[in-house]
Amino acid sequence: MKIKDIQEEIIDEFAFFDDWMQRYEHMISLGKSLPLIDQANKKEEYLIKGCQSKVWVYPEFKDGKVLFTADSDAIITKGIVALLLRVFSNQTPEDILKADTDFIDEIGLKEHLSPTRANGLVSMIKQLKMYALAYQSQLN
């Protein structure tokens, strides 16, 4: 699926909930479906700074697409990462780089995050795009 379509799907999904509690419950269950990073890759170099909780993201490049696996020690953070990976994993570097992140505002996620978590979210997106950029420059 194209990034834009996945984002639309997520927006529809969140529109369905009418209070934050249900949204959080949904995020928590998304966290459980996160494609988990291999234990061996949980290294300092794959740790993303800027979160109160720890987040590891491991990138791979296969058949022209970037695949991410990840983990976090906090479950809500895991849900946020799962949401991001659903959008950005298994896409081409080019698509990842040109994708916008308006869907995050549209589902009202940021308003519901504490400032530290919102910072964490920004650093996560930055990190995913950095990996995409690295793979793209390998291609060129």
Partner: peptide
Amino acid sequence: IHPYDIGTI
């Protein structure tokens, strides 16, 4: 449970 998750809820 991570303390951060509890604080958030």
